[in-house]
């Protein structure tokens, strides 16, 4: 039996969708406007501002930086995060329970605080080069996602399978690679993609850690906006959005988004 939802509830739901989607519509509209300033509704129709992204060298350069940074930072984070998630699940009984909280701290601490303290320690006190600082910062930023998502996959992993492999003559380090990892592969891929997106879209951490000559795409976008305020800002935003949506679609089709929300 279907009962019709209350009209107020329908109205409320419509409002939620409106506020979620309207900004996107405005950004997409503004990005195709044939004017030299940001405006909505668009006047005329052009893809010039999308071409412009690839013509302005600062955008090209920061796009490459953002991508390399995301891949390096995420990989580093997984190298730390997978063993951490493994230990947290394998020795859940023996380990103190606060340990799993430690790994989500970067989410709990306000990003601006994290960014500032990273600048103070990694860049100022330890004197690492800018790109290295960025890699460390982003690795830390995405670590909670890596640990959480890989943990979710490991929580349904039966560790007696690993013991079976060991009893059959497989050393433990090898059993980790040929038995444990293949069975949580989906979780590792999901963690990688989620972390990649988080890193590419990050502003607050990068704001503190970028410096002369090295910037990321979102930071360049901010800088560009301060100087020009032309529709390139909108087109870059749409591009970032498309990358995110595209990656999420791939995850949804191959693994299911439930993997990320568990």
């Amino acid at each position: 039996m279907h009962t019709r939802p209350h009209p107020v509830l329908i109205g409320f739901a419509c409002l939620v969708f409106f506020f979620l989607l309207a900004p996107l519509v405005i950004i997409i509209g503004a990005s195709v406007s044939d004017t030299s300033f940001l405006t909505f509704p668009p006047q005329g129709l052009t893809l010039h501002w999308y071409e412009n992204i690839f013509e302005v060298s600062a955008f090209k350069r920061t796009m490459v930086t953002s991508f390399i940074l995301a891949v390096t930072g995420t990989s580093l984070s997984l190298i730390v995060g997978i063993p951490a998630a493994y230990a947290l699940n394998r020795y859940r009984v023996q380990l103190p329970s606060f340990l799993s909280t430690v790994f989500v701290l970067p989410i709990l601490v306000p990003e601006i605080v994290l960014g500032f303290s990273l600048m103070k320690t990694v860049t100022t006190a330890m004197g690492f080069p800018i790109f290295v600082s960025l890699v460390i910062g982003h690795a830390l930023l995405v670590l909670p996602y890596c640990v959480r998502v890989v943990s979710a996959a490991l929580s349904s992993f039966d560790f007696s399978i690993e013991e079976a492999a060991v009893s059959l003559g497989c050393p433990r380090w090898k059993a980790f690679f040929i038995i444990v990892l293949p069975n949580v592969r989906a979780g590792v891929i999901a963690a990688f993609i989620l972390a990649l997106i988080t890193s590419i879209n990050d502003v607050s951490i990068s704001l503190f850690l970028t410096g002369p000559g090295i910037s990321t795409l979102p930071i360049q976008l901010l800088a560009h906006m301060e100087q020009f305020f032309d529709p390139t800002i909108a087109s870059v935003s749409v591009l970032l959005m498309l990358v995110t949506v595209g990656v999420m679609a791939v995850v949804e089709l191959t693994l299911g988004l439930t993997f990320l929300t568990k």
Binding site: D158, A164, A165
Partner: peptide, 9 residues
């Protein structure tokens, strides 16, 4: 093992 512990993959 009690739960068989076969390698699922």
């Amino acid at each position: 093992f009690q739960n068989y512990a076969l390698f699922p993959h």
